[in-house]
Amino acid sequence: MTKIIVITSGKGGVGKTTTSASFAVGLAGRGFKTAVIDFDIGLRNLDLIMGCERRVVYDFVNVIRKEASLNQALIRDKHIKDLFILPASQTRDKDALTLEGVAAVLEELSKTFDYIVCDSPAGIERGAQLAMYFADSAIVVTNPEVSSVRDSDRMLGLLSSKTKRAEEGQPPLTEHLLLTRYSPKRVARGDMLSLADVNEILAIPLLGVIPESQAVLRASNSGDPVILDKESDAGQAYLDAVGRFLGEEIPHRFIEEKGNWLKRIFNLKERETV
């Protein structure tokens, strides 16, 4: 059975596209045939983050309008086999996505793919609603900051009422919280909402915490999703999150402040004496 995952947030710029790219690579890396779709019509960006911007010929809207076949529009990822990208259109027509069109594309993909990752645009307009409509799981990307948390809660409300599952009275989609751009240092200083605070307020299962990391900008500069940077904290955090999504029990990391130099020296000494 194909699983459709929406990466959503309400608020803009919190890390949806970064997460979509890394999640798609992570799932394909585990051997699942995966498609990742950019629903941000007019503001195509997933192609850049995946490093395939120069290979875009046809897009999502071309397929919906039957100007191209799905196979013509899907771009094979250069990093990993079994991963395909369906880029957004740059049209300014905000009615370009239709419910029937999206349904048809998802249905066709479902014949051969294991996972379909939908990168939602910000906001609660058509693109965001269609990105979530057919989903079996939702990953709610949240930053530890008041407006992001509030918007996430608003999206949870929509997820429980404005999806196919909700409208047809099927079992609800599974919700996952992904806290991104987390800075344990600022939490310790009392400047940032903590993981526990956000978890308590939103009250949905925690999929992972992605630390604020310089590796993310480096990854987008080169067009290689950060999950491929296995040395980096953010890359490892995404690998863990994908594992948890697949049902593995993996302890959360990058949620405590790194020990200060004094502690580190102390630890080193302790280790030496063992």
Binding site: E145, V146, V149, R150, V187, G190, D191, M192, L193, S194, D197, I201
Partner: peptide, 9 residues
């Protein structure tokens, strides 16, 4: 300030 954030939210 984080506790203000939490209370207000």
């Amino acid at each position: 300030t984080s506790h203000f954030a939490k209370e207000r939210l």
